[in-house]
Every structure is written in structure tokens, then in C-alpha cells.
């Protein structure tokens, strides 16, 4: 019961924050780049719910608009990773042999080396900004998807209905598409719920060290970076972006836990 309640609250929170950020202009009357020097570094008040930053920009608006980049980069990077991971994972799991061997080597390699350092290297290759982040995160996170999909495919491959399909003369691509993929939805959903928050967090860390989006655009990571520098005198600048980021990740984690129990993926 407790799990279910948290599950609903988490979904509600994530929906709310996606809606708010999508329709940000309707939610807040301030723009994210509008500067107002006479109202700079204000504490939270009725006019500015979360205060203003050092250029007088409304922090609440900046967080809402920042959510667009934070959520979008996390979700899109995970979807790209999912596409690569599902293709390589099913192919390697179904055919086995040298294809599988090569994939396993690559997976082993990535398992040893920390993804965030790889992402930093890739960031300088692709350039700072949204696309750079997207590719850096996607290329470092498809391994997790591939590993999971491969393991599941290995199991499904041995099922009787797959054997029956083979006996009926179905080709491998049809078998993968018709019989293996439909059975992968549960694990894929679970892996999405784990990978999306991981990527949102990675994005915020890359942005925090200054490798992410460039001004005037901002994500929660860049906001936290600005907030960190002024933290001692104006703690609201880091507390609000941090709180929203934390709650979002928390919601994703509760979501993932519940899905994991439901689909019994370890």
C-alpha cells in the first residue's frame, strides 16, 4: 500500500513538473532571461516565489525553463541509448557467437571505466551545449540498456514459443520483432526508470562543472553552479534548484523501485 501511494505521488509530481515546464509561459509571468537590476538577489517573496538571482532574473521562472533542458536531455539521451541498446542487445542475445562476444567485450570495458569521465571527454569532442550533452550521455549509457536487453533476450530465446516460431520457418528478424521485443517491455520500462534519473543527474553534474549549456540558457545544473558560487550570502540560489532536482530524482527512484517489483527485474 505504501509503495503504491508513493508510486502515485511520484507519477503525479513528474507529470506536474513536465506540464509546468512545457507551459511555463502560462505558469509564470517572468521570462527566464529578463533582467531587472533593481530587483537583484532578492529573497523569496510574494512577487518572486523563489527570489531572484544576481541579474534580477526570477528564480522560479529560471527553474521552470531549466526543467525543459534537464528533463529533455535526460529523457532524449535515454531514448537514444535505448534504441542503440535494444538493437545491439537483441542481436547479440539472439545470434550469440562472435557478435555477442564483441558486445560483451565492449560492455566489460565500459563497466570498468567511469561513465562521467568518458562523458567529459565526449563533451569536448561534441562541443558544449544541448546536442553535446545528448550525445555524450547517450553514448555512455547505452551499455546498461544493451546489457539488460541481452540478458532478457538470452532467456526468451530458450522459450518454447520461440522454438515453435522457428519450426514454423519464421526468420530471425521476424522472431525478434514479433516474439522477443513484446516480452521486453517490462524490463525496458524498468531500465528507463533507472536510466533517466541517472542521465538527469549526469547532465546536472556536467553543467555544474561548466561543461553544459551556455548562457542565457540554463538547466538545473547550471543554476546550481551559479547558486553554489553565491551560496554563503544567498543560500536560496542553490536551495531551490537543488530541491527541485532532488525531488525529481527521488520521484524517479520511487517509480523505478515500484516498477522493478512489479516486473520482477533484479
Amino acid at each position: 500500500m505504501k509503495g503504491k501511494k508513493l508510486f502515485s505521488i511520484s507519477i503525479g509530481f513528474l507529470l506536474l513538473i513536465s506540464l509546468f515546464s512545457t507551459f511555463a509561459p502560462l505558469v509564470t509571468k517572468y521570462s527566464f532571461e529578463e533582467q531587472n537590476i533593481s530587483e537583484r538577489l532578492e529573497s523569496p517573496s510574494f512577487h518572486h516565489w523563489m527570489g531572484t538571482d544576481n541579474l534580477g532574473r526570477d528564480l522560479f521562472s529560471r527553474i521552470l525553463y531549466g526543467a525543459r533542458f534537464s528533463l529533455l536531455s535526460g529523457v532524449l539521451a535515454t531514448l537514444i541509448a535505448l534504441l542503440i541498446g535494444t538493437i545491439t542487445g537483441t542481436v547479440a542475445g539472439y545470434w550469440g557467437g562472435w557478435v555477442d562476444h564483441v558486445l560483451m567485450r565492449i560492455i566489460d570495458f565500459f563497466m570498468i571505466f567511469p561513465t562521467l569521465l568518458m562523458a567529459i571527454l565526449l563533451m569536448v569532442l561534441f562541443g558544449r551545449g544541448f546536442t553535446g550533452i545528448l550525445f555524450a550521455l547517450a553514448l555512455t549509457s547505452w551499455i546498461t540498456q544493451a546489457r539488460l536487453v541481452r540478458a532478457q533476450t538470452l532467456q526468451i530465446r530458450e522459450m518454447e514459443y520461440v522454438e515453435a516460431a522457428k519450426a514454423l520457418g519464421l526468420g530471425p528478424i521476424k522472431i525478434i520483432y514479433k516474439h522477443i521485443l513484446p516480452n521486453l517491455w517490462g524490463p525496458i520500462l524498468v531500465s528507463l526508470s533507472i536510466q533517466i534519473p541517472t542521465n538527469i543527474m549526469s547532465e546536472s553534474m556536467l553543467s555544474f562543472i561548466g561543461l553544459g549549456l551556455q548562457p542565457p540558457y540554463s538547466s538545473w545544473g547550471t543554476l546550481a553552479n551559479e547558486g553554489f558560487r553565491a551560496m554563503k550570502s544567498f543560500p536560496h540560489l542553490i536551495i531551490f534548484p537543488g530541491l527541485v532536482l532532488f525531488l525529481t530524482l527521488l520521484a524517479f527512484n520511487y517509480l523505478g523501485d515500484e516498477l522493478r517489483d512489479r516486473y520482477e527485474v533484479r
Partner: peptide, 22 residues
Amino acid sequence: AVSGLSLPSYLLASLLILLFCT
């Protein structure tokens, strides 16, 4: 545990610095 997984290290660091230093 779940908070630890959801808290980026730089945020935790900021909170700790605010609390224990400032």
C-alpha cells in the same frame, strides 16, 4: 538510501558546507 541515490554530490556538499561551515 533512496535520498542518497537522489542527491547529486555537489548538492549534498553545498548543504553540508552551509550547515557545518556557514
